[in-house]
Design a protein around this nucleic acid. Structure first.
Length: 777
DNA sequence: CAGTGAGCGAGCTTCCGCTTGACTT
């Protein structure tokens, strides 16, 4: 048996390192942190210098006992967690929890998983850096204090089960602030002019756009009229050589962005695919903020490029990490074996691997050389200029492998065309000039990936938390991932055509219906998210401030350098913070989320929109009014954006459609969507019908369909015991007294006897409680 | 898988960062 015990954080890492180290070493993993603050009473003894109360996490008990017994037998225990704040703390927690003997314990670190790096680390052990550990304790305690004192304020002021925290509240604020910018934004029409010309002596049509945009149709018309009597010629040719550089290899954040743009993966999808690739030994670790590549990787990549494309395509580079607060404990994300072109696996895994591999290769390739040509076309009767651009690749370099994409999908002005060889002053023959009405677009909402990019820039959150943070704010219903329909607009197009270079005497005008400003899969705030963010901004502005993290990081750095005592630093923060919390709790009033929309002309009552117990609603009548009417807001409409007319429309429900079988047929909006009620039966009307327009015959048909389905639903029943066997969404099940029971595998629903049903019912419902417990953690 | 409403009880909810599983009701 091995005499040495090496403990790392990840099991996949343990496996690789185990191979390098051989039989004298047992390599085990701690699966990340093994202890955390107790959940009860904050887990912090505030009076006693913020002393943390640590408990072994329930899911880590097993691994801790295993490590304990292995450590007892080992002659040396090597703590090999990452070389950053969290990693140092993991080493210290292990040391403390496993009760290791200092004389037999070594702390080692390495940034890359190569044999050399690990052997070198073993030759150079050090002690646990307690200052760095204290910086982590400060980080942990601060986050707990902020989260567990701020959240209860929200429970009392807005709604139970809400949450606030240093990271999630800053992320939410980014989304809410963006929405406010959009609400403030006024879309303005303008006219963009495109000119198509044929250089004299050629047959190529050159597309160009005018350097001036017109605000009105008259101005655009005016310009086109000037073009009718104009001679066009080239007013300038500007040729420049430009260099394009490859992007650095992937970090977590940049991988999430590119995978979203190029493969359409969500942030969490990308991470779970990457996790799989990592476990299979295809790529290096996927949660990293570093763009660094190991010497080994640099060497093999260079060799690969030289052999595949030739030496002129190779250029070894090491990139600087620019992101705020980067800790660089790992390498960049790269393929473990760069010459493996394709891997086994499903389509998504193959695509992500390919992306990572090409990005890594490109990062080590020569820059591309391009020749950029800009031509300017002028007219004899106007001073504005048309511009066209072309780009010619002189040396492709890294472009052979990889082209980075960007977020601006509607940046038309940058488009380039192929240009024929031209000379200055050359005559250009008019072919078509058109002025198209466009609308200025509101700022773009965040996608998951662009939010991550912004968070990284601001230093908010870590590679391991980007995806979970987004899940949290979606789970709290602060934001949703939604697609926004654009607004339909009538767009005018003015067109001047030419016949053999001679302008038509008339300018043609057309109107086209277009949707302006539609967005897909964007993060949109909900009313509750806006209320929470506004409340926090009003009362705890410095916590949700984008610079809060950056500021506390500065303190953490000082603690790590031994220049600041961690608990006195926390105390400086806590004293004023806690005072504010107490102040906020003293005022027991709920946050007022209501907005008065106006007065209902029919009843003279006030109409307001607010957040109710079950979500946002509109209300006809003030709280004091005896008779009130409620309606919940439709999806995608905010309290801030709903109008009086929209609200009045909503109050038209419930509608009585008439009688069927001597009973009223009533249509209304329910918790689970619109429904028709008849004889105390509720029938969902589905997506194809609109509750505001549905008529009696359609409703009756829905009721009849429902009855037929009900009959099919009943497989068998034992009325004496009140037992029914029904056909449900997940197959047949047993129902008694409003409770449902699963039919065990291997039994046929139709053949069940009464005794068998009773037996199934008497058995404890294990699976349900088990599942609930698990999803809670 | 059930269900179509808007002031009661008691006790609970919640943070950020490390890591990887495990249910298909």
């Amino acid at each position: 048996m091995g005499e040495n015990l090496v403990i790392v954080e990840s099991p996949a890492k343990a496996k690789t390192i185990g191979k390098f180290l051989g039989n004298d070493y047992i390599v085990k993993s701690s699966f990340g942190h093994i202890r955390d603050l107790a959940k009860k009473n904050l887990g912090i003894d505030i009076e006693n210098g913020f002393k943390p109360k640590y408990v072994v996490s329930p899911d880590k008990k097993k691994i801790v006992t295993e490590l304990k017994s292995l450590a007892k037998e080992a002659s040396i225990v090597w703590l090999a967690s990452d070389e950053d704040r969290e990693g140092e703390a993991i080493a210290w927690h292990l040391f403390d929890t496993l009760k290791l003997d200092p004389a037999k314990t070594r702390r080692i670190v390495f940034h890359e998983i190569t044999k050399d790096a690990i052997l070198n680390a073993i030759k150079n052990p050090r002690d646990i850096d307690i200052n760095l550990v204290n910086a982590q304790q400060a980080r942990r305690v601060l986050d707990r204090l902020v989260g567990f004192e701020l959240s209860p304020v929200l429970w009392r002021k807005i709604k139970p089960k809400l949450s606030a925290g240093r990271v999630q509240s800053a992320a939410l604020k980014l989304i809410v602030d963006k929405e406010r910018d959009i609400l403030k934004f006024k879309s303005k029409p303008y006219y963009k002019v495109d000119g198509y010309f044929i250089p004299e002596g050629t047959k190529t049509k050159v597309k160009s756009s005018l350097d001036k945009k017109f605000n009105t149709k008259e101005e655009a018309q005016n310009f086109l009229e000037k073009c009718q009597n104009s001679i066009f010629n080239i007013a300038g040719i500007d040729t420049k050589e430009a260099t394009k550089y490859p992007a650095p290899p992937f970090t977590t954040s940049s991988l999430q962005q590119e995978a979203a743009r190029k493969c359409g993966f969500s942030v969490s999808q990308t991470m779970s695919i990457a996790q799989k690739l990592y476990e299979e030994g295809r790529i290096t670790y996927m949660r990293t903020d570093s763009t660094n590549l190991s010497k080994l990787a640099l060497g093999t990549t260079k060799e690969y490029i030289t052999n595949t494309f030739g030496p002129e395509y190779s250029k070894t580079r090491q990139y600087q990490t620019h992101s705020k607060g980067a800790q660089e404990a790992h390498e960049a994300i790269r393929p473990t074996f760069v010459n493996v072109e394709e891997i086994e696996g499903n389509g998504a895994e193959k695509r992500l691997y390919d992306l990572i591999r090409k990005r890594t290769i490109a990062s080590q390739m020569a820059e591309a050389k391009v020749e950029k040509t800009k031509i300017t076309i002028g007219g004899s009767s106007f001073s504005e200029k048309f511009h066209a651009q072309a780009e010619q690749i002189i040396f492709d370099g890294f472009l052979k492998v990889y082209i980075e994409s960007n977020d601006d999908d509607n940046n038309e002005d940058d488009e380039t065309t192929l240009l024929p060889i031209l000379s200055d002053k050359q005559k250009m023959i008019g072919s078509e000039i058109s002025a198209t009405e466009k609308y200025t677009l509101h700022p773009a909402r965040y996608t998951e990936a662009s939010l991550v990019k912004k968070m990284e820039e601001l230093g908010i959150g870590r590679p391991s938390t980007y995806a979970p943070t987004i899940s949290t704010i979606i789970k709290r219903e602060y934001v949703t991932k939604a697609s926004k329909m654009g607004e339909p607009r009538d767009v005018s197009i003015l067109k001047l055509s030419f016949d053999n270079g001679i302008a038509n005497p008339s300018i043609e005008e057309k109107t086209k219906r277009e949707t302006v400003g539609s967005e897909k899969g964007k993060l949109c705030p909900e009313d509750i998210g806006m209320a929470v963010s506004d409340y926090l901004s009003d009362h705890f502005d410095y916590i949700v401030d984008y610079n809060f993290t950056a500021n506390v990081e500065e303190s953490f750095d000082k603690i790590a350098a031994g220049k600041l005592v961690w608990n006195s630093s926390i105390s400086d923060f806590y004293t004023p913070f806690h005072k504010k919390i107490e102040g906020a709790l003293e005022d027991t009033n709920h946050v007022d989320t209501s907005r008065v929309l106006g007065v209902d002309p029919k009843t003279g009552k006030q109409v307001l929109a607010r957040i109710g117990k079950f979500g946002p609603l509109v209300q006809l009548g003030l709280p004091d009014d005896k008779e009130k009417q409620f309606a919940s807001l439709p999806k995608g409409v905010l309290i801030e954006t709903i109008t009086l007319d929209d609200a009045l429309e909503l109050f038209k429900l419930p509608r009585n459609l008439g009688q069927f079988e001597d009973k009223d047929v009533i249509v209304n909006n329910g918790r689970f969507g619109p429904y028709v009620r008849h004889n105390n039966k509720f029938v969902s009307i589905g997506k194809d019908n609109d509750p505001f327009t549905i008529d009696l015959p359609t409703a009756i048909q829905l009721i009849l369909d429902y009855r037929e389905k009900e009959i099919k639903k009943h497989i068998k029943e034992f009325p004496e015991e009140g037992i029914e066997i029904l056909n449900g969404r997940y197959g047949p099940y047993i129902k008694q007294a409003k409770k449902n029971y699963k039919i065990p595998k291997g039994k046929v629903a139709e053949d069940l006897t009464l005794d068998e049903c009773l037996e199934i019912i008497s058995q404890p419902k294990e699976s349900v409680t088990k599942r609930k417990k698990k999803s809670k953690k």
